[in-house]
């Protein structure tokens, strides 16, 4: 192990001196701070960490890190991070993306990174709007959403990032909200510890172009009733009083209040993030805060072979069985003739 691995780091070791240029009040500030803290908790040295982003407000994040960083082009961060991880698997690789960058122009790279299960951590800042281009609807904007490019409302359905991740056979999905610092830190640490592609969706507020888009869920007045913090091995309880729970209702889920209609704590489901089937994970991830509470925390965390480990093992295996010391040796082992 590298000698630096045992050293203790603080959040400030991952921060650099650049002044942060996001708008005052932008949710990105909180996410940046929790990322610094999560990295300190993980303890991977800054020089063994790479943060790779595409284009958009969120994608400015690498400039505010004291790690290796690459602010690339629109939509392509997942492909660039994939090549980076394959080439230098010792590095801890983070990809920062927004809903436009990651799911519109970069949608193809997103699903294929998830499908390959390359060992990177994708942090998806979801504010349901294009901020850097000043307020057009994004692939996560709800149907009918009015924006500069949809003045009469959109006529298309949005992606639910979790559904897309599960459709691409994702093995790790977690969610947080920008204002929930402790939850964000918890899921970022869990994402980094998961081997394989980790997708972390963070609901983020754009104060300028989409202020309050998540209010129906995040407002303090009813956040406790409209969200549920899932933790592996714990009962699925929520509510200001902690007396509401999720129970099975046929093939679906239902929110109940303990003590009402005969429901007791024994009826409440226990969260199993590690079960290979994503059937229940998908139902949990699709809850949107209306009839059922929006889930935050680690929803799915299942071990599976990673692309980079499998590739390295295959290279080692081929080299062990039919490896050549050099190009010349490889050619000479084939069909040749000699001219004297």
């Amino acid at each position: 192990m590298h000698k630096m691995e045992n050293q203790t780091y603080t959040a400030s070791d991952y921060k650099n001196g650049q002044s942060v240029r996001w708008c005052p009040g932008c949710g990105d500030h909180a996410i940046l701070n929790t990322l610094h803290k999560a990295m300190a908790t993980l303890g991977v040295p800054p020089h063994r960490t790479a943060v790779i982003s595409g284009i958009g407000c969120s994608s400015r994040l690498p400039y505010y890190m004291n790690t290796y960083g690459f602010h690339t082009i629109h939509g392509r961060a997942a492909a660039i991070a994939t090549g980076f991880k394959i080439a230098n698997p010792e590095m801890s690789v983070w990809q920062i993306s927004g809903d436009g960058d990651g799911l519109a122009i970069g949608g193809n790279h997103f699903i294929h990174a998830v499908r390959r299960n390359i060992d990177i951590n994708i942090v998806l800042f979801n504010n349901k709007i294009y901020g850097l281009t000043k307020g057009q609807y994004s692939p996560t904007s709800p149907r009918g959403f009015v924006s500069k490019s949809s003045p009469y409302g959109t006529v298309e359905d949005p992606f639910i990032p979790a559904e897309l991740a599960f459709g691409a056979r994702g093995n790790f999905f977690a969610r947080s909200i920008d204002v929930e610092l402790a939850t964000s830190q918890e899921v970022l640490v869990a994402a980094a510890r998961h081997k394989g592609t980790s997708v972390v969706e963070i609901l983020q507020n754009c104060v300028i172009f989409n202020n309050g888009i998540h209010n129906a869920i995040t407002d303090k007045e009813y956040r406790a009733d409209r969200t549920i913090h899932l933790r592996h091995g714990e009962k699925m309880l929520f509510g200001a009083e902690g007396n509401r729970g999720l129970v099975q209702d046929g093939f679906l889920l239902k929110a109940v209040t303990l003590g009402e209609d005969g429901y007791t704590i024994d009826d409440v489901l226990v969260h199993d993030a590690h079960t290979p089937s994503n059937f229940l994970h998908q139902q949990l991830a699709m809850m949107d805060g209306t009839d059922l509470p929006l889930a935050v925390g680690v929803i799915r965390d299942v071990e599976a072979p990673t692309y980079n480990d499998t590739l390295d093992a295959q290279v080692a295996d081929v080299r062990a069985h039919k490896g050549h010391a050099s190009l010349r040796d490889m050619i000479l082992a084939g069909s040749t003739w000699e001219v004297k």
């Binding site: 690459f70 492909a79 660039i80 090549g83 980076f84 394959i86 080439a87 230098n88």
Partner: peptide, 18 residues
């Protein structure tokens, strides 16, 4: 990779990585 763009982008990532 999944397309031509990803082909060159993965190579750029690998180049950045050394």
């Amino acid at each position: 990779m999944e397309d031509e763009i990803a082909g060159v982008c993965s190579a750029i990532g690998a180049s950045f990585a050394g």
